[in-house]
Simulated assay, not measured.
Amino acid sequence: MGGLKTTLQVINGMVADGIIQKYAVAGAVAALNYIEPTVTDDLDILVSIDDFQSGASGLATLEPLTSYLRSRGYTEFRKEGIVIEGWPVQFLPVANDLDAEGLNQAVEVELELGSGSAPIKITMLTAEHIVATALKVGRPKDRERILRFIDEKAVNLKVLRDVLNRHHLLEAWSKFCVQMGLPDFNESTFERS
Results as ranks from 00 to 15, higher is better:
Y68W: 11
D17M: 11
T61C: 03
H168C: 04
G55W: 00
K79A: 14
F176H: 12
E76R: 15
D99Q: 05
E108W: 01
G114R: 02
C177F: 00
G114L: 01
L92A: 12
D41L: 12
L4K: 14
E152G: 00
G81Q: 01
L32R: 14
S193T: 03
G13I: 01
G138A: 01
G55H: 02
I35E: 13
K158H: 05
W87K: 01
P183D: 09
L111K: 08
A118K: 11
I146W: 05
K141N: 12
Q90K: 13
D97Y: 00
E112N: 15
T7A: 14
A172G: 04
K79Q: 10
S67K: 14
E110T: 10
V47M: 15
S71N: 14
T61I: 03
L164E: 00
V39R: 14
V159P: 07
V163H: 07
Y74F: 05
V89M: 01
S115G: 14
S71Q: 09
R145Q: 09
N96K: 09
D44F: 09
Y74W: 08
G55Y: 03
L62G: 10
G86P: 05
T40Q: 02
T66V: 10
H167T: 04
Q90I: 01
C177Y: 03
P64T: 14
D51M: 04
K158Q: 06
E191L: 13
D51I: 06
F185S: 04
A172F: 03
T7G: 14
F176E: 06
S48P: 05
L111S: 06
A100Q: 15
N156C: 09
G102I: 10
W87G: 10
S57R: 08
Y34F: 15
K22M: 07
I122C: 08
M14H: 00
E110G: 15
A172C: 04
G3A: 01
S193K: 12
R145D: 04
E110I: 08
T133H: 07
L62T: 13
N33M: 06
V15G: 10
D42T: 08
R139K: 04
Q21E: 14
A31P: 02
L69K: 08
E101H: 10
